Amino acid sequence: MTEAPASVIVIDDDPAIREALGSLLRSVGFDVKLLASVGDFFNSGRPAGPTCLVLDVRLPGQSGLDFQRQLSQANMQLPIVFITGHGDIPMSVQAMKEGAVEFLTKPFRDQDLLDAVYVGLERDRVWLENEQALETLRARFDSLTAREREVMASVVSGRLNKQIAGDLGVSEITVKVHRSQVMQKMRAASLPELARMADKLKLPLCKPPRHV
C-alpha cells in the first residue's frame, strides 16, 4: 500500500498569514489545508496520512490552547506547532506540557517552522504505524475462539500446559492443540513474542483458580 501523503493543517484567523504559511509549506511538497477557525477543522476532519497542525494561539471563539485540551480529552492524536504574536512563558510552558511539538513567536524564521513541522509529522507517522499494528493485532485476537483466548491468557501468565488443563477441566493434549492454534492465528513465533502481543492488547493476566 502507498502511504498517504503528509499533510499540514494551518488554523489562523489572519488570511495573510494563512496564505503565507500555505505558500511556504507547499514549496517543500506538503499537502496543505488552510482554515480560519477550530470549527472549520471539525467540519473537515483530519487527513488519513501523517498530519501536523500549525495552530495560532489566539483564535475567535476558542483559543488554540483550549483546542489542544479538547483534542487530548477526545483522545485524538495530532501533533501541534503553536504560533503566536502574543506569547508568554507560562503560555508556552502549558502548551509544551500538553504535548506541543513547538511554540513559535511571530515573527519566526521559516526554517524554524519547517523543522518543527517535520518533527510533528514524524511523530504522527510513528503513531499511525503503531495504531495500524495494534489494529492488526486486535483483528488476530478477535479471530480466536473463546477457549483459545482463555488458553492464551493462561500461557502468557506463565501457566504450564498441565496446569492449564487442570484449570479448564480439559486434557493436556487439548490444551496443546489450542495453544498451537493461538500461536498460528496470532502469528507469534515464540512465547515471549506472544506475551508482548498480549501486553500491547492490554490483556489481563490469568489468575489460577483457588482450590479450597
Rank of each mutant, 00 (worst) to 15 (best):
T84F: 14
Q73A: 12
A95K: 11
G169E: 14
A4F: 01
L25P: 15
L59Y: 07
R46T: 10
P107F: 04
S180E: 06
I83C: 08
R109V: 03
G22L: 03
D31K: 13
E172I: 08
G87A: 11
K207D: 10
S44Q: 14
L121A: 06
V93Q: 09
E129V: 09
V8S: 09
R46P: 09
G22F: 02
S171C: 11
L113K: 10
R69C: 08
Q73P: 00
G45H: 13
S190A: 09
P208F: 12
L24R: 03
D142K: 05
L121H: 03
Q94D: 15
N161V: 06
Q181G: 15
R147V: 15
I83S: 11
R26F: 10
P90N: 10
R125P: 02
S44G: 01
T105L: 10
F41H: 14
E102L: 03
R58P: 01
A6C: 06
V8I: 04
D13K: 07
L55M: 02
T51S: 00
L34Q: 15
G166N: 13
M96G: 12
R147T: 08
M183P: 04
L53Y: 01
L21N: 05
Q111T: 03
D66T: 07
T105Y: 08
K202N: 14
K97A: 06
A20R: 13
L59G: 06
P79G: 00
D88Q: 04
M91R: 07
S190F: 02
L160I: 07
R138E: 09
Q132G: 03
I173L: 09
Q181A: 14
T105P: 11
K162L: 13
A116F: 00
